[in-house]
Nucleic acid binder design. Structure first.
Lengths: 261, 261
DNA sequence: ATTCTTCAAATCGTCGACGATTTTATGAGC
DNA sequence: GCTCATAAAATCGTCGACGATTTGAAGAAT
């Protein structure tokens, strides 16, 4: 509701004459070619990212409905593409698609949360072990650079920024494992974890987490697989334990939540 | 306008079910049973399964094109639903969706194959370790039942049947781990592995694999986590090593490959 | 005869529309 | 005043259609 009905697709042309370029395919309309990359080329990614960021920044609390017509007019595309994005979001467990009842932001249950963290521990343990075997000196340098970024983000005290750097760190460590498949699975899990952490984390243990990250890098750089796995496990267990169950709520329009308009 | 309150498009009346996942919620069994379960209820699952089985049984070799219009007329649905299924198949890495160029059956490269098996070893190791902790006596009985099925399938000498039982075994062991997320990931990986094995396996080592399965169950039943993980790892390494690179090819129509018509 | 150009056929991406289902608003009945 | 039945609105699932892109083949030039 409260939907401003003024938004309309840029070019409908429909049945009337002069429909020179009515049906816009994946063509970038060969403009200057610059803005096309982010502007009109991959609209799907933009929608996905908007919803994803909205969920991560708590503008879209769990249970928020995401009606297809609303997203259509917000992004100026047809339902076909919106529906495709929603399917991808459902697959990544960001939203839940209830048949004939629309899409809502996923609300992980405590039990689900436990399983997610358990799965994440298993994957990160395996990947850290691979990382110890396969890392090079240059990799360690890059990890140290990331740790430095974390310190800056900590000073900033803006939680989403810190969460972003922390996520980057874990993904980078996982990338050292050299297995794209496990990395893809872990990326999915880290997204879901971030979603949960963004909801429940009291926000204020960044320093503690940063210390643990440093431990992990130290163990990897020394080639101590056992200690690296143990440090990662301890870090993840600590992260899970810091979660408490409180859920803020607010009432805004979908456009506001998506940081549009 | 638009009278005809009773006239319906040719094949409707039941297509509106539209449940996406395997779990079908509202069971409207009032239609006196028209084989709705397999006939016209969940068409998407039927299409998915047809392609999946076709790939697994080598009727659909890698690189086979899957044009949307062909699938549409084969299954009597519109392109929207076919497209949805193809997206799901792409996500599960069964097919590859090239923009504007159609879908083809995925052809895993040797490098990819190595990574897939590596990921699978990591996941199954973690799950077997969980299974050792959480299994009950009844679970062991069921595993023994599965092993007995394997012996029957071995005598049958029909490779797809054996592959099916072997897959069941791994999935059942993984289910004992009690983590639906890891189980889902492993299901995906086992599908991809089966696809690869179906392509390359010389077919004839069933007895050897069965022995290794027995070892795994034995270790689990005795609560020996270390040995269970080692047995699983050895089993998977052996499976990977038995793969050679030969690829049969034949020329049939899509309908024949899908075992229709 | 080979190669490049040109054209037609096949196929894909997106759109608007229609029926079916769910949700919400309204009014009768207790 | 509250509850339940009814109707209207909103939303979802599917379909056919249109334009754009790719593919494959026919024809001209060297």
């Amino acid at each position: 509701m409260t939907q401003t009905p003024s938004a309309k697709p840029r070019k409908t042309a429909s049945t009337a004459a002069g429909a020179r370029k009515a049906g816009r395919g994946p063509a970038k309309t060969d403009m200057a070619g610059i803005a096309a990359v982010d502007g009109g080329a991959d609209v799907e990614q933009r929608i996905y990212q908007s919803v994803f960021d909205g969920v991560l920044n708590q503008r879209l609390p769990p249970g928020t409905k995401l009606p297809e017509p609303a997203l259509c007019s917000l992004f100026g595309v047809s339902r076909a593409v919106v529906r495709k994005v929603l399917q991808r979001l459902e697959h990544d467990r960001i939203v839940e698609l209830r048949p004939n009842r629309g899409a809502v932001v996923a609300a992980p249950t405590p039990e689900e949360t436990r399983k997610i963290f358990e799965a994440r521990r298993a994957l990160e343990a395996a990947l850290v072990e691979l990382a110890v075997q396969r890392h090079s000196g240059k990799d360690i340098e890059e990890l140290h650079a990331l740790l430095h970024q974390e310190e800056e983000a900590m000073a900033n005290a803006y939680q989403p920024a810190w969460a972003q750097t922390a996520r980057n760190f874990h993904l980078r460590v996982a990338a050292l494992g050299g297995n794209p498949i496990l990395l893809a699975y872990l990326t999915e899990l880290i997204s879901r974890c971030s979603l949960i952490v963004a909801l429940y984390e009291p926000a204020g243990n960044a320093a503690c987490e940063h210390e643990e990250h440093c431990d992990i890098v130290d163990a990897i750089s020394k080639g101590d697989a056992k200690r690296a796995v143990a440090a990662m496990n301890a870090h993840l267990v600590g992260l899970e334990e810091r979660i408490c169950l409180e859920r803020p709520s607010s009432v805004k329009t979908l456009a506001q939540m998506l940081n549009l308009a």
